[in-house]
């Protein structure tokens, strides 16, 4: 295989391999003694929630990076990560609701973890809405960077909400100071494989989104410069005589 094709296809190959491994482990892992088959929702819910933390954490890094360096590449990192983060936060909330209905008897409960995750979701929806209000790249980058930093204050609140408050949502299963709380090794591996697969998907999507933002910024700049007068109102462009058919 030529190296150019190999390098262009690596994200897709990595996604296929990691998703296939995660899917296989999710299928062969045993049903949970308490949750039964519902535990399989966790193989997508937990990695999606992990990705939300990762994505919004990277948005924070990109936002700080832009304010320090004023390089638009940092802004593209922040924006791309926020877009992916909003999608996966929505997925985590949606899957959590599907899991909650048979387990808790309700689609939604006013639990600290659930409520704060929904709040975090709306903060980053606001972040994306804010980005749409400014046409000029640097204006958009500067303003959204501030919100990217402010919104990141919610990440530790969401994660530690199950520790700080008595909640219906169970405590963290993987990211614990005393190690994972899951006893069955196959369930643990299935969860970890899901986390790895989603992280690979995140990296691949980030690469694509950053490239798309770069191209969109370039197109916007070209359009803006085309509409701008050459040297003010005192200079007018020369008028060409004759029509196109005059040769």
């Amino acid at each position: 295989m030529p190296s150019e094709i190999r390098s262009r296809n690596w994200p897709w190959m990595a996604i296929v391999v990691s998703v296939a491994v995660a899917l296989a482990l999710a299928i062969v892992s045993p049903a949970d003694t308490v949750q039964g088959e519902l535990v399989r929702i966790m193989y997508v819910h937990v990695p999606a929630a992990w990705l939300a933390y990762l994505a919004f954490g990277v948005t924070l890094v990109g936002s700080v990076g832009y304010l320090v360096t004023r390089r638009l590449s940092w802004d593209r990192v922040a924006a791309s990560s926020a877009e992916i983060g909003v999608y996966f936060t929505g997925l985590a909330i949606g899957l959590g609701m599907i899991w909650a209905k048979p387990t808790w008897g309700v689609w939604w409960t006013w639990d600290a973890r659930l409520t704060l995750t929904a709040v975090m979701f709306f903060v980053y929806v606001g972040y994306l809405a804010l980005r749409n209000t400014a046409d000029e790249s640097r204006v958009r980058a500067g303003r959204s960077a501030v919100l990217g930093i402010l919104g990141a204050a919610l990440i530790p609140l969401v994660h530690f909400s199950v520790v700080w408050w008595r909640t219906l949502h169970q405590p963290a299963s993987l990211l614990r100071p005393d190690g994972p709380a899951i006893q069955d090794p196959l369930i643990l591996w299935a969860l970890l494989a899901g986390v790895v697969a989603f992280t690979v998907i995140y990296v691949a999507l980030m690469a694509k989104r950053i490239e798309l933002h770069r191209v969109a910024d370039r197109i916007r700049d070209v359009e803006r410069s085309a509409n701008r007068p050459v040297a003010g109102a005192s200079v007018t462009a020369p008028e060409l005589g004759g029509g196109l058919g005059d040769g």
């Binding site: 709040v119 975090m120 709306f122 903060v123 929806v125 606001g126 809405a129 804010l130 749409n132 209000t133 919100l147 402010l150 919104g151």
Partner: peptide
């Protein structure tokens, strides 16, 4: 969209 966006930004925070 300034005035419409402020409530969306402030309410969750």
């Amino acid at each position: 969209a300034g005035s419409a966006l402020v409530p969306l930004l402030v309410a969750p925070l």
